[in-house]
């Protein structure tokens, strides 16, 4: 890695503003879409622009990613990335992951609140006896919630079927990406490609099984976002995790393409390392999910 004494400061860049516009279009489009599909007030047909705006937003967002990361890659190939700048990138990624953790933490908070507070209260525990007697007399405190206070019934997920297999898959993948990293450090390009490929494959397996799992929940168990707080927490947690896995797989695929292009040196491979950190994070989240959503 080049020892440029100066900290590289790009002069100006179009990509950020492109990104902001894209983000705005996406958000505005999404809001309008939801808004139009579930119009609460009468006579709201004039939201035809919603879908186009939304997808344009996504498209531009993708464009921005390519453009932006492209620039960064070119800079690093030009050797503009000093050790200090590299550290900035790493710290940035780590703090980003911290924020992601807090996002999941909030949903876990909701899960624990439901399990330890609201559901017991609705069944009369913790000084909320009247709540039970007067408002929800025939509600029983069970977890998973087979019958909501409102009377929606559903069945619970099983831990030791697909979920467990998925756990094994993800844990393994966490190992394989580490192997890939070691290979990269030792400059074993073949090992790198092999293990990275395996990890991607495992990621895809996970997603496939998750999809099967969902259809099973939906079809056989009658479990949906609508089936009370159990369904809500289950789908929101696994769903957001799933979307993060998808993102991770995409990132790793891009890494693969770059590897094939011959990018990355044993010393200089921030992007690859960031991806692997992200993958580990996704993996750890899953372990919590498996423990608290499926198992106990």
């Amino acid at each position: 890695m080049s020892e440029t004494p100066r900290y590289y400061v790009p002069h100006s860049s179009v990509w950020p503003i492109v990104g902001s516009v894209a983000l705005f279009l996406t958000a505005f489009g999404a809001a309008s879409l939801i808004h139009q599909s579930t119009a609460k007030v009468a006579g709201e047909a004039h939201f035809g622009f919603a879908a186009p705006v939304f997808y344009t937003g996504l498209a531009v967002l993708a464009l921005m990613m390519f453009g932006w990361f492209g620039t960064v890659i070119r800079e690093s190939l030009q050797g503009l990335v000093s050790r200090q700048l590299d550290r900035s990138y790493r710290m940035g990624m780590l703090w980003f992951i911290v924020s992601e953790v807090m996002f999941f933490a909030a949903f876990f908070g909701a899960l624990f609140y439901a399990r330890m507070i609201s559901v017991p209260w609705l069944a009369g525990a913790g000084g909320k006896l009247e709540t039970h007697l007067i408002l929800w007399p025939d509600f029983a405190d069970t977890w998973p919630l087979f019958m909501t206070p409102g009377g929606t019934a559903s069945e619970a997920m099983q831990a030791w079927g697909l979920p467990f297999i998925n756990t094994v898959i993800l844990v393994t993948s966490s190992g394989t990406i580490t192997f890939a990293h070691w290979a990269l450090k030792r400059n074993h390009r073949f090992g790198l490609k092999l293990w990275l490929g395996v990890t991607i494959a495992l990621g895809i397996c996970f997603l496939t099984l998750q999809a099967i799992e969902y259809s099973h929940a939906w079809r056989e168990l009658g479990l949906s976002l609508g089936s009370g707080i159990y369904g809500s927490t289950f789908f929101m947690l696994t769903g957001f995790h799933g979307s993060h896995v998808t993102l991770g797989v995409i990132m790793m695929t891009i890494m693969m393409l770059r590897v094939l292009r011959g990018h990355f040196t044993p010393e200089n491979h921030f992007a690859f390392e960031a991806t692997s950190w992200y993958w580990h994070f996704v993996d750890v989240i899953w372990l919590f999910l498996f423990t608290f959503v499926y198992w106990f």
């Binding site: 507070i117 209260w121 919630l145 909501t148 409102g150 976002l225």
Partner: peptide
């Protein structure tokens, strides 16, 4: 609001007050 979850609705086992905690 739109996808039928009941984080903040007692009838689904949620709690409006949970919103305030978050």
């Amino acid at each position: 609001r739109h996808f039928g979850t009941s984080f903040f609705a007692a009838s689904g086992g949620g709690d409006p007050v949970m919103f305030q905690h978050i």
